[in-house]
Simulated scan of single mutants.
Amino acid sequence: MTYILRILLLLQVLALVSTSAYADDVERLPKWELGAGLAAASFPDYPGSDQNRSLVLPYPSVIYRGSRIRAGRDGLRGMLFKGKRWDLDVSAGGSLSVNSEDNRAREGMNDLGISVEFGPSLRLKFIDEADQKLQLRFNLRALLVTDDFPVLDYEGWLFNPELRWRRHFGERYILGSSLELRYANRAYHDHFYGVASQFATVTRPEYRGQRGYSSVGVSSFVTMKLDQNWRTSVRLGYYDLHDVAFNDSPLFRKNSGAFFGLSISRVLWRSEATVGPARIDDITL
């Protein structure tokens, strides 16, 4: 286990055993908020790649806190059932494209298109308080890829159990961490790690993906509310790829990876209608 993983796991343990007390008052939140932000990030081209990318990008900040549809930092959610101890919803996420000309392992191959992961999520709520939340999620998502925009092609499925924790510290800070496991089918792994016969070379033999274990990862973040409109966030993560199902792929070059992200955003408009009460926003869970 690497030094980075040990640090992140230690943060996770310390967070879960924290017993600090907080005020009982909670705030209501606008039903929607619109704004803009700037994000900087560094991350591998794909899990198992030995090349990283660093990006600085502007982005729109859209938050919607409906009773059935919610949108926020973690993507889009459609609530199917909300109970005291468990929720069932449909959620979506995604990843950026990879230009194969910029990646040594994939040189001469087709690019990896922008991808969307979409599917149901069962969320068991162990702690569900205004200042602290702890959930065990069971996410099952289909991989949809935009090789020929706007057409989406199905490229397999991913099962992604995740333990996620959030806690509010004072009036300005939210600290969070998560521990997750990934398991995918043959088509999913083949999309990222498969080498078709027309792309095989002497140093890059033909390869077909196999179903099985994909990775284990841990991440932590801190979000700070600078004032009523300005927010900033820092995120750090690490994942381990030892003994994965695709470790024989010639595109698999590194058995670990890390990512870092920094963002700052400003709310420009918000609704007069409010929802709540809440302190930790459910849409970030």
Rank of each mutant, 00 (worst) to 15 (best):
N255Q: 09
T274W: 12
S249P: 06
Y238W: 09
E272Y: 13
D240L: 06
S271E: 13
H242S: 15
P250Y: 03
R279W: 10
D240I: 06
P250I: 02
P250E: 02
P277T: 06
F246R: 04
S233F: 11
L251A: 01
K254F: 02
R253F: 02
L262T: 07
L236A: 15
F252S: 00
S271T: 14
K254R: 14
Y239P: 00
R279H: 12
L251C: 02
R235P: 10
D240G: 04
G237H: 03
F260V: 08
V244W: 01
T274I: 15
G237Y: 02
P250S: 03
N247T: 00
G276I: 11
N255M: 07
S233R: 15
S233D: 14
A245H: 02
S256K: 04
P250C: 02
F259Q: 01
S256I: 00
I264L: 05
A273W: 08
F259L: 03
N255C: 07
Y238C: 04
N255K: 10
S263L: 06
L241R: 00
K254I: 03
R253C: 05
A245T: 05
F246M: 04
T274V: 15
N255P: 08
S233C: 13
W269C: 11
V234A: 08
T232V: 13
P250R: 00
A245Q: 01
L241M: 00
S265C: 11
S271A: 14
R253D: 05
S265D: 14
L268K: 04
D243K: 08
S256F: 03
